[in-house]
């Protein structure tokens, strides 16, 4: 039971990171982006490529950091991957979403993202193969946190959680304290008025994609560290991430953080009563539950 709770919190840390970007896009560009989870795949594979590259460049980089299975090479790769995934998000927007947006119709955007998810996922499969990959083949030993009840946590998981919380805190500071954060809020509330008051809409959209992509990249790598990297990880993550945004309330960054942890914990706790095969259905049950009790989520506002 407590083990499920702990695992759930760890899952929540990368769901939250994924959901933050998604909720921002849904708020500013006003469409449910079904291809957002593919950014996590792009990020995970990008880090994998650079991890291999850096390790082959220098044995020093291939050394592990402390008790983690993570290496300096992987740490560097995460940074590269954040930049490249953010950039991919911007490029995808340029090539597809912006052009659909200019023709009008929020639903066409949903539709386009639906198609894009299929394209990205399978192109990744074609490039990297259909089998799963790992950042490190070494077995990371779990730390015994307590014996009664037995509680096991891998050092990597602790790192992931702490790193995720730090990143979220940094984002919180940016959104609540800076001019950029205010401009983002303004764009979300009233894009025309924000532009009239000097906010550059195009630049803000680019910024949102960069943030969404780079947070997605981190989430993807963290997912890869906790499980494995596969071309279909986006398919498996899209519903939990959507569930996190809906639980938190579409458009609320804080809601997305909390929603991610709630969905992570609930999915794991559900395994106490449900056979494990049913875990993919749990996010959907949570969406139904939220729609029944509190349709606008924990922090969302009603908006047509």
């Amino acid at each position: 039971m407590i083990q499920h709770l702990v695992d759930g919190i760890l899952v929540g840390s990368f769901l939250s990171l994924g959901a933050i970007g998604l909720t921002m896009v849904m708020h500013i560009l006003r469409f449910a982006n079904f291809s957002h989870a593919e950014l996590l795949s792009i990020g995970a594979y990008c880090a994998l490529v650079f991890d291999k590259l850096f390790e082959s460049l220098s044995p020093f980089l291939a050394a592990k950091i402390g008790p983690l299975s993570m290496t300096a090479a992987l740490a560097l790769s995460i940074l590269v991957s954040m930049a490249l995934t953010g950039l991919s998000a911007v490029v995808i927007d340029r090539l597809v979403f912006r052009r659909v947006r200019e023709k009008g119709g929020e639903l066409s955007m949903v539709f386009a993202s639906f198609g894009m998810s299929l394209v990205i996922r399978n192109v990744i499969g074609l490039i990297f193969g259909l089998s799963s990959e790992l950042y490190s083949r070494d077995i990371a030993f779990a730390m015994v946190i307590s014996r009664d009840p037995l509680l096991l946590v891998k050092p990597d998981q602790v790192f992931v959680l702490i790193a995720a919380l730090l990143i979220m805190f940094a984002l919180y500071l940016v959104l609540s304290r800076t001019r950029f954060g205010f401009a983002l809020r303004a764009i979300a509330e009233n894009p025309n008025l924000a532009q009239v008051h000097g906010v550059n809409l195009k630049r803000m959209i680019v910024a949102v994609w960069l943030i969404g992509g780079s947070l997605g990249a981190i989430a993807g790598v963290f997912y890869g560290l906790s499980y494995q990297i596969t071309p279909v990880m986006g398919r498996d993550l899209v519903l939990p991430i959507f569930a996190a945004t809906i639980v938190g309330g579409i458009g609320s960054v804080y809601g997305a953080v909390l929603g991610g942890f709630i969905v992570g914990v609930a999915s794991n706790l559900a395994l106490v009563i449900l056979p494990s095969g049913y875990s993919p259905s749990v996010p959907f049950l949570m969406i139904l539950l939220v729609l029944l009790i509190r349709p606008n989520g924990l922090f969302g506002e009603a908006r047509a």
Partner: peptide, 27 residues
């Protein structure tokens, strides 16, 4: 549950139904 809400709730919920449906049929 979804038609009175913002349009993308329907998109997400229907997508979720499909995932859950396949999952339940399998299990």
């Amino acid at each position: 549950l979804t038609l009175r809400l913002r349009h993308d709730y329907l998109a997400i919920a229907t997508f979720g139904v499909a995932v859950a449906f396949e999952n339940v049929m399998r299990n």
